[in-house]
Amino acid sequence: MTDGRERPVNLAVLMRDGFAALNGRVLARLAEEGHGAVRPAHSAVFEFLDETGTTVSALAERAQMTKQGMAELVRHLEDHGYVTREPDPDDRRAKLVMLTPVGREVVGIAQRLVPELEARVADLVGAERAQALREDLTVIARLGATGP
């Protein structure tokens, strides 16, 4: 709570805002190409979905969110034709979330945009600083694996 004062800016906020800026460009491109139904939260589905399909429970665990929340994201994407739920051949009680051809198109657009976004960052801060940023973020990401 800030009691109406300006919110403090810290490293975590800056990293979140940087991600939001880059992700916003991806979402804008997706919308331009006819995929306006894809929202920021849906990246949790696309990012953690295996090529051979993934259960909602596994997606939720990977995204560190509730199963109910993930099921809602999957339902939205299913309603818009990006994913389907198919019986798991290894467990008849389970369903696998699978990309449809339209879902694969979304992944392809996002993947093709990555080099463009990275080039834009390098243009903004310089190639050496962009490479240093990549290395620093790699080290920082290891904090999650090693604990506080």
Rank of each mutant, 00 (worst) to 15 (best):
T52F: 05
V38N: 07
G147E: 02
A94I: 01
R29K: 14
L96D: 04
H80Y: 13
A130Y: 00
G34L: 03
R39M: 15
H76F: 04
A145G: 11
N10Q: 05
Y82V: 06
S57G: 12
A28Y: 07
H35V: 04
T138R: 15
L133G: 09
D91W: 03
L73N: 10
G108L: 04
R16M: 09
P115F: 09
R92I: 06
R29A: 13
A145Q: 13
R104G: 14
A44I: 00
G4E: 05
P40I: 02
T55W: 08
S43D: 11
V74P: 06
A130L: 00
M65G: 12
D88M: 02
L124M: 09
M65D: 03
E128Q: 14
V97I: 07
T84R: 14
A132D: 13
D17W: 08
E86L: 11
A141V: 02
R7C: 01
R7T: 07
Q64K: 13
D50W: 02
V13N: 03
G18S: 13
G53T: 03
R129S: 08
A12L: 11
G24D: 05
R112E: 12
E105C: 05
E33A: 07
K67Y: 11
A31D: 12
L49V: 07
G24Y: 03
L73S: 02
P148C: 01
R75N: 10
D3C: 07
G53V: 04
V83I: 10
R75G: 04
P87N: 11
F48E: 06
L96F: 05
T66E: 10
R85H: 06
L22H: 03
L137H: 01
A60H: 03
G81Q: 09
A141K: 12
A141E: 13
A130W: 00
A60I: 05
K95C: 01
N10F: 11
P8K: 09
